[in-house]
Computed example of a mutant assay.
Amino acid sequence: MSLVELKNLTKTFGGLLAVNDVSFSVEEGSIVGLIGPNGAGKTTVFNLITGNYIPDTGEAIFDGKDVVGMQTHRIVNLGIARTFQTIRLFKSLNALENVLSGCHCRMKSGVFASMFRTPAQRAEEKRVLEKAMSELEFVGLKDQWDTQADSLSYGKQRLLEIARALATEPKFIILDEPAGGMNDQETQELIELIKAIRERGITVLLIEHDMSLVMKICEHLIVLEYGAVIAEGDPETIKNDPRVIEAYLGADDDLL
């Protein structure tokens, strides 16, 4: 069953055709990779799904609803979360406070309850704090809950951004180059983390240039070039596709 269906998405910026009639689906419970050379339009596709951009044409169907034109906070409330190619954390806040900011979209207490600290509001505050700590533990940052975000290593900042995304309680998480800046050990730990995210019932779509990671973890790959889909299939099919080899993988066996 498809959780996400993109239908004929097109996006131009001035005279640049960034996304060209892109259609593909993401099956519920899967781990799917969106790959391609720099400038292929991968992050633009992510931005079309999450409401950062509005397509010129096409549909982005999530869980049966077209999210095109929806405000980003409504899309988050539906169950879509994401991380970014360039890390976007509240760097002056600690790790726990960053994850708590992700929990905010699921809180129900209004202004009155917050002002007067009603029993329901206090109970919700306790639940949210426990949720945030649980997500930090899930990504391996529980012991650094009070560390300021910009004092964490680059790899751990990536993990913190994933924890914050998970705190929104998504059905579908989009990871934009999650292994960027990570060493080999951190990358291996990331692979296990992504598998664990899927085991929670969350569908994963990622952009990643680390082809060894992509080939190890993704069950299905979509390849973009110049904003258009040029190939789609399982990793074995993709790594042997002549169009993909020419456009992206090249002849370096280490990539495969």
Rank of each mutant, 00 (worst) to 15 (best):
T72I: 14
T83I: 11
A123L: 00
V22C: 04
S25M: 08
R82Y: 12
F62A: 01
D66H: 00
I75C: 13
M107T: 15
S114P: 06
L93S: 11
I35L: 15
N20Y: 09
A60Q: 02
P37W: 03
A18N: 09
V19E: 14
G36Y: 09
N52Q: 11
K42Q: 11
F90P: 08
T86W: 05
V26I: 15
T118P: 02
L16I: 15
G33H: 04
S30H: 12
T50V: 12
F84E: 04
A40V: 08
T118Q: 07
Q121L: 03
M107C: 14
T43Y: 10
G79A: 13
V26H: 04
I54V: 14
N38C: 10
I35F: 12
L93R: 06
L17C: 12
K108V: 11
G36P: 13
D21L: 01
A81H: 00
R117E: 04
A81S: 15
Q71P: 04
T57M: 14
G39H: 09
Q85T: 13
V45A: 10
N20E: 12
L48N: 01
G64N: 13
S109G: 08
H73W: 11
N77R: 02
A18P: 09
I61S: 04
S101F: 10
G15N: 12
G29E: 15
T83D: 11
K42R: 04
A120T: 08
V76E: 02
V19C: 11
S30P: 01
A120I: 10
L78R: 04
T57I: 14
N77D: 09
S25V: 07
V99G: 13
E59P: 01
R82I: 13
F116H: 08
K65N: 05
E124K: 11
T86A: 07
S92P: 01
E27P: 02
G41F: 06
L34M: 13
T57V: 13
G69H: 07
D63F: 00
V32M: 15
L89I: 04
Q71C: 05
I54D: 03
R82N: 09
A81M: 01
G33K: 00
F90V: 08
L93H: 01
I31M: 02
T86Q: 08
N20P: 12
C105F: 10
C105K: 05
L100I: 07
R88L: 10
A40R: 05
T86F: 08
T72M: 14
T86L: 12
F84P: 05
T43M: 13
P55W: 08
Y53L: 15
R74S: 14
T50D: 13
T86N: 13
N98E: 12
Q121N: 07
F24M: 15
A95L: 01
M107K: 15
N77Q: 06
T72L: 09
L34G: 06
V45L: 11
A60R: 02
